[in-house]
Design a binder for these strands. Structure first.
Lengths: 195, 195
DNA sequence: GTCTATACACAGATAGAC
DNA sequence: GTCTATCTGTGTATAGAC
């Protein structure tokens, strides 16, 4: 029951991070959302940074599980697996469960680069996706002129692309149309698949 | 001299916003960076939101000037003008002068949508770019299946793409290589121009 | 482990002299 | 308009009873 309580906390943090970002989210909000007192939060997590770190770790672990699923039951070609992973992150965003990544300098970023558990998951995920990327480049399905790290960063960045939320509030497209359009622009670019 | 002082303030804010984001930037830092007392800041701008708004407006005005330049002396095809504008925003980012946009909910975003001067510039810029976008789609240079607003949002989002800063800290590419690579992935996608 | 109450720090904004 | 000094609110974190 301690585990399930902490799970409930992390779920709330996940959603609040997605909604407001790390700096704007307050521990009072988290406590209110979970339905416990703020002081109780600190019995489970020693700081706001540690709490956010736990949320980020949870997302990375879910991503690693998804990589396993795709490797077992997914499409054969690596390019299609990469597209499936991208679709997975877009669906997470659309569900409001993707915490916004700390791209710029922030207190969270400094805490995360000192968080061994977080870095471990991040590197494992990078390695798995990196293998797919180089394979897809060898197969001629990804532009081989692009540095693999550029491809990796681009896919990571799509996981928090503000274009999705802009399209969502504009209200002209369904969630599925948004996801498909973003996959198209990510892999085929704005010019589109034909030339 | 009041004008030049305010210009100096906005330049500092621009850089600090690019470096740390709105929530993390403090008025004390701004004052220290400009070299005046914090109270003096408030003689020029009534709030932190207003100050950041002035910085955003300045960027939009520079962008509008750039649109004029390209319309006068730039390439003939709209697709190439859009690429030139993208390159311009990437160069701004590389110079550390592009304030990070308030994609998620933040105090700044709420202030900006109530800022008439800001919204006016944003709409003017959107209209100018929107005309290029539909023209490029008609010419077959942009994927005509994509909603123009999606293309517009995608270009706006490239102006604060975290991929750029990730590549910059990794240190493997020159600034020019980074800019060219990002234009390539934006317009031709990860799969590249050939198929 | 949960709560109420509070300590502590810091950031946005202002007062008032010059 | 610039300064020093200060007010005020708020957010992280903790004390201590139960």
């Amino acid at each position: 029951m301690l585990r399930s309580r902490e799970e409930a906390i992390v779920v709330s943090v996940n959603r609040l991070l997605a909604e407001k970002g790390f700096e704007t989210m307050t521990m009072d909000e988290v406590a209110a959302d979970v339905g416990i007192a703020k002081a109780s939060l600190y019995k489970h997590f020693n700081s706001k940074e540690e709490l956010a770190g736990a949320a980020m770790i949870r997302v990375l672990e879910r991503a690693l599980e998804q990589v396993d699923v795709l490797e077992r039951d997914g499409p054969a070609r690596e390019i299609d697996r990469l597209k499936a992973m991208t679709r997975w992150t877009l669906d997470l965003q659309l569900a409001g469960e993707m915490p916004s990544l700390p791209a710029q300098n922030s207190a969270l970023r400094n805490a995360l680069i000192a968080n061994k558990a977080y870095l471990d998951r991040l590197m494992r995920l990078s390695d798995r996706l990196g293998a797919w990327i180089t394979a897809a480049q060898s197969a001629g399905d990804l532009n081989a002129a692009l540095p693999p790290e550029l491809v990796l960063y681009t896919l990571f960045a799509r996981a928090c692309d503000p274009v999705l939320s802009l399209l969502k509030v504009s209200g002209n497209l369904s969630d599925d149309q948004i996801a498909e359009a973003l996959i198209s622009t990510c892999f085929d670019g704005l010019t589109g698949p034909r030339r």
